[in-house]
């Protein structure tokens, strides 16, 4: 397949940086300027600059921009409070809202020609998932101390040698399923769009896939958010 035209990569290549042609480069510099990294930085820049510009001065009677962000932030917090309680939502809100907004923007940015979704690279989704995984267990140890191990032992004492590996395996399966679901969906969207643009872009062939892509982007961001909420609340509650 033709290498898609990514304008950040083209600019960096014009500046003489070793932009890799595959997904990941060899040297450290090539790794730093590979497309998923540069587009991650673009998404970060977008998420920092755009709220700054649109928010304006915070006031008691919100203007247009402030209203928009209040709806988004309030909606996210309500969604979390429904699933993990008010206390947990307040504690985990910064991290989970960051994940939700980042993944949503990162998924959507790939719908525009000249951009790519950073989440269509397994390294990005795996990094997000590993953060969620370790935070889950840190929360478990924080809330239950050494008694957190009861979560892994099952209800019956003499079944412990059987239950311990089973529980460990199902916890590690979470890493794989969470990261590969997001990666797979977004990479499928990107690849399909690329192929359709190349084959019949002049006849608007990618149009239905673009509509589906919006839907998939929102659903996958929500699913990632929801599953991390469920894992966190499962680690915080008592063992059955």
């Amino acid at each position: 397949m033709e290498h898609p035209i990514l304008f950040i990569s083209l600019i960096l290549q014009g500046l003489g940086l070793p932009v890799p042609h595959g997904p990941v480069g060899d040297t450290l510099l090539a790794k730093l300027v590979s497309p998923h990294m540069t587009y991650t930085w673009l998404v970060m820049l977008f998420l920092i600059v755009v709220p700054k510009l649109t928010l304006g001065t915070m006031s008691l009677v919100p203007g247009k921009g402030q209203n928009f962000w209040e709806v988004i932030i309030g909606g996210l917090e309500g969604f979390m409070a429904d699933n993990m309680g008010k206390e947990g939502a307040r504690m985990m809100f910064p991290m989970l809202a960051t994940f939700a907004l980042y993944i949503l923007v990162a998924n959507m940015i790939g719908l525009m020609p000249g951009f790519m979704s950073p989440t269509s690279n397994l390294n990005i989704t795996l990094a997000c998932t590993l953060i969620v995984f370790f935070t889950t267990h840190i929360l478990g140890v924080k809330f239950h101390g050494i008694g957190y191990i009861k979560h892994f032992l099952g209800p019956i004492p003499w079944l412990i040698p059987l239950m311990l590996p089973i529980e460990l395996i199902s916890h590690f399966a979470r890493i794989l399923s969470l990261s590969i679901r997001l990666f797979g969906n977004i990479m499928a969207k990107e690849t399909l769009l690329g192929i359709l643009f190349m084959l019949a872009g002049a006849y608007f062939a990618p149009l239905p896939i673009l509509c589906l892509g919006v839907f998939v982007s929102i659903v996958q961001a929500l699913v990632f958010l929801l599953l991390s909420i469920l894992y966190f609340s499962a680690a915080m509650e008592h063992a059955h």
Partner: peptide, 8 residues
């Protein structure tokens, strides 16, 4: 969201 994780 929960049931879509079962197969995987």
């Amino acid at each position: 969201a929960q049931f879509s994780t079962i197969g995987m």
